[in-house]
Design a protein around this nucleic acid. Structure first.
Lengths: 110, 110
DNA sequence: CGTCTATATGCATGATGATGTATATGCATA
DNA sequence: TATGCATATACATCATCATGCATATAGACG
C-alpha cells in the first residue's frame, strides 16, 4: 500500500498529527489530545499515515509509539524541485513563456 | 477564497494540469488534451487552481491563457522547511527520532 | 484468570468532491 | 445580426472519506 503524499496531507487533522510528531515519537494517547478528534479517528489517520510512509510504529509496552519517516518529505521536495525555477527569482511569466518556445510538449506526471 | 494548497494538489488530475503548465501559459483547450477528462471538468479544476492561487488567467481573444503562480509553491516550501531537519543528512542516525523521546530538548548537535 | 489501560477496527452516517451531459456565456468574424 | 468556436456553469450521480459509537484486540498486572 502506498498512498499518495498529497492526498495524505490534504486532511488538516492529519497535518496536525504530523506536526505533533515533529519533535519526536509520541504515543497515540498524546496525539489524540492534540488532534481534537476521537481516538478512533486518530487511529485511522495514523493507519493512513503509515500506509503512505509518513510514520513508523514501534511497540512500547501496551502503547505504540509513532514517529515521522523522512521518505515522503523527500518525495515532496523532489516534486517541488520541478517547479523551483518558477518561484526562484523569476516572477514574471514571460520568461517561462519564452522557454516554452522550445520543446513544446512532453510527458510528465505527478 | 483561499483553498488549501495540499487539498488542491490532492487530486491527480489537478497535478497533471499543474504539470502541463510547468513550461508556460496554456489555453484551456490544450490543457484538456493532456488532462484526460472532459472540458467542463478541466474548467472546474482550473477554477479551483485559481481560487487556491496556483494559476492566473489572462484573456487572449476568445481563449483564456492559464499560467502558474509562484506563491503556493513557496507556501509548500515553507511548510516543508519545518521538517527539513528530519530528512536532511540524517540517514546515518535513523534513531534520531527515537532518542529524543519525550522531554528531551532538541538542539543542533554536531 | 480477571481487570484495567491503550489502541485498532466494523458499522452507519453525513459531507464533500470528481465527473459527464447539457446549457449558458463570451468573443470573433462573416 | 447570425454563426461558430472557446470556455464556464448548473444539475445529477457516483464514489470516497472523515467522524463517532460500539466493540475487539493486545499488553500489563493483580
Amino acid at each position: 500500500m502506498h498512498i499518495d503524499a498529497f492526498e495524505t496531507l490534504a486532511d488538516p487533522t492529519r497535518r496536525r498529527i504530523v506536526a505533533a510528531l515533529r519533535l519526536g515519537e509520541r504515543p497515540v494517547g498524546e496525539i489524540v489530545r492534540q488532534a481534537g478528534i476521537h481516538q478512533s479517528g486518530v487511529s485511522r489517520h495514523l493507519r493512513i499515515l503509515q500506509d503512505s510512509g509518513f510514520v513508523s510504529v514501534r511497540p512500547d509496552g501496551q502503547r505504540r509509539l509513532y514517529a515521522l519517516r523522512p521518505e515522503p518529505f523527500r518525495e515532496l521536495e523532489a516534486w517541488l524541485a520541478d517547479y523551483r525555477r518558477l518561484w526562484e527569482a523569476r516572477l514574471d511569466r514571460f520568461g517561462a513563456a519564452l522557454e516554452q518556445r522550445r520543446g513544446a510538449n512532453e510527458e510528465q506526471e505527478t
